[in-house]
Nucleic acid binder design. Structure first.
Length: 516
DNA sequence: TTAGGGTTAG
């Protein structure tokens, strides 16, 4: 119970009084530091364990789960391996569960899977829970084949899959639109006497909504009423989002009102969904009005709410309002996150080119925010850099973009495929095709595989600067690698050919019915 | 007396 710091002072007092420390006390203290988000302090207690001859136990380690919360996955894994390898402790169910969950939630599916297999060799055998963690992670990675293989492995080893196992798999299948496989799995589940619940139902509703089949979803919801599975706030939110995705924010609003009539209190996600819907339809006044209503209804806007509002304001170019909303956020709102910063930077750069008319100095504004983030060490996200590099390129500041790019290796943040694509686009816009090509070589050297976007950017660059013979050579390599023109390149190409039909003679491949 | 866990909505 709060206040937590008093635990620390109590502990100090006990030490001064010479009261002997035992493992329980140390674990409580470590746990307390973790609750205060002071993993560093918690970690620094480990030597006391050793000095006082108090053995580290599995509880000590599990208490350090905060390591995962603070994204210190490497530290956590190093410690885990050390403890196991040096036989300092034998992991139990709880310890495996903590580590696997920590790893899987941070995208380390491979490591989670290998722990599952490690467990099989030891004395603590994996149970349904452990399998479910891995199956869900595989589904989230869209690796449904591997997930279904694990389901079969469970059956072979007589570890019974349960409703959660099937719900994870159904969600994975729905998100990929694999409806036939869903039907098979659904009947398999029912045959095993595992019955769908409101979660299964919501997963399905959401799957339909994401496919644009919102009426089907709504119909499905109405059918179930009074038949055991009642729609809940998640059902309504999913349907509202489905309508918003199709641009039908007014229909979403009607669902919102129906929900209130049924005495289901909208939560912050309901508001965020609607605010996003209004923002996308450029109805910013409505969005702002909803923002005001949130506190009246006893809820509180969160970071996502503000990020969504900011996006909406930038869509209609209300930069002054966006700045005011951000200032409000800093003074009395939720803490901005990396998404807030990306939204702001993207917005400032987007309107950077109109600044000469309005004298906003938006590129400078963006760079000043970026520099603040660097000082606060809040620039650890490659996506943030991608926004800045792209913004500089689009505002004709290729040199600055290049120096930001060069800086990445100094701070040890590896560029991703988008970073390279952005730089290549920047070079192509300026007609610096040799620099673009050398960037392509650099990315391959750094083992970052070019993707379809990379190749399309090059093709557009060659077209823009009328380098047709180079384009021919390049197209061959592109086809060999299994890439093809995207819609944007196709449109670009059509315009070029319309203006200069002889391009078709210079690139005869364009006539052939291959995968271009 | 201390520790963990799985599924759905923004």
């Amino acid at each position: 119970m709060s206040p937590l710091p008093s635990v620390v002072s109590l502990f100090r007092e006990m030490r001064i009084l010479g009261i002997p420390i035992n493992e329980f006390m140390l674990n409580i203290l470590i746990n307390n530091y973790c609750l205060m988000h002071r993993v560093d302090c918690a970690f620094s207690l480990l030597p006391i364990h050793l000095k006082s001859g108090i053995p580290l136990n599995v509880v000590t380690f599990t208490t350090l789960r905060e390591l995962f919360a603070e994204n210190k996955v490497t530290d956590a894994v190093v410690l885990f391996k050390k403890l196991v390898r040096e036989k300092i402790l034998e992991p139990n169910e709880v310890m495996y569960g903590t580590v696997m969950n920590g790893l899987s939630k941070r995208g380390h599916t491979e490591k989670t899977l290998s722990l599952l297999h490690l467990m099989e060799q030891g004395s603590t055998k994996p149970d349904t829970f452990k399998y479910n963690i891995v199956i869900d992670a595989l589904c989230k990675d869209r690796n449904l084949d591997a997930a279904i293989n694990l389901l079969n492995e469970m059956k072979q080893k007589n570890i019974p899959p349960d409703r959660v196992t099937y719900n994870s798999l159904i969600d994975g299948l729905c998100k990929l639109g694999l409806w036939e496989k869903f039907k098979t799995l659904f009947s398999e589940m029912v045959n095993l006497n595992i019955y769908p619940n409101v979660n299964t139902f919501n997963i399905l509703i959401d799957g339909l909504c994401k496919e644009g089949k919102v009426e089907d979803a709504e119909e499905g919801m109405k059918c179930r009423v009074g038949k055991g599975v009642e729609p809940d706030i998640i059902t309504y939110n999913a349907i509202m989002d489905g309508y918003c995705l199709r641009g039908q924010v007014d229909r979403a609003r009607r669902i919102f009102d129906i929900m209130i009539d049924k005495c289901i209190e909208p939560d912050i996600i309901s508001y965020n969904v609607l605010i996003n819907g209004y923002g996308k339809k450029k109805k910013v006044a409505k969005a702002m009005q909803l923002l005001g209503e949130i506190s009246q209804r006893g809820s509180k806007p969160n970071t996502v709410t503000y990020n969504t509002i900011l996006q909406g304001l930038f869509v209609v170019g209300r930069i002054g309002d966006a700045k005011r909303v951000y200032a409000e956020m800093l003074s009395r709102g939720p803490v901005p996150n990396s998404s807030t910063h990306r939204t702001l930077l993207k917005g400032y750069f987007r309107y950077g080119l109109v600044e000469v008319y309005f004298r906003y100095g938006l590129v400078e504004e963006a760079m000043s925010l970026f520099n603040k983030l660097k000082i606060n060490r809040e620039d650890t996200d490659i996506e943030l850099y991608n926004v800045v590099i792209n913004g500089l390129c689009k505002n004709g500041k290729l040199d600055e973009a290049q120096s930001v790019f060069e800086n990445l290796s100094l701070i040890g943040l590896p560029p991703d495929v988008r970073t390279y694509n952005t730089m290549i686009t920047g070079f192509c816009i300026q007609g610096l095709l040799d620099e673009a090509k050398s960037m392509l070589r650099k990315m391959e050297k750094n083992r970052c595989l070019p993707n379809n976007v990379t190749y399309n950017v090059f093709v557009q660059g060659f077209l823009k600067w009328s380098k047709f013979s180079e384009m021919r050579t390049f197209m061959k390599e592109m086809a060999d690698r299994g890439f093809s023109f995207d819609a944007s390149t196709a449109g670009f190409l059509l315009n070029v050919v319309r203006e200069n039909p002889s391009v078709l003679d210079m690139i005869p491949e364009l006539h052939s019915k291959n995968n271009y």
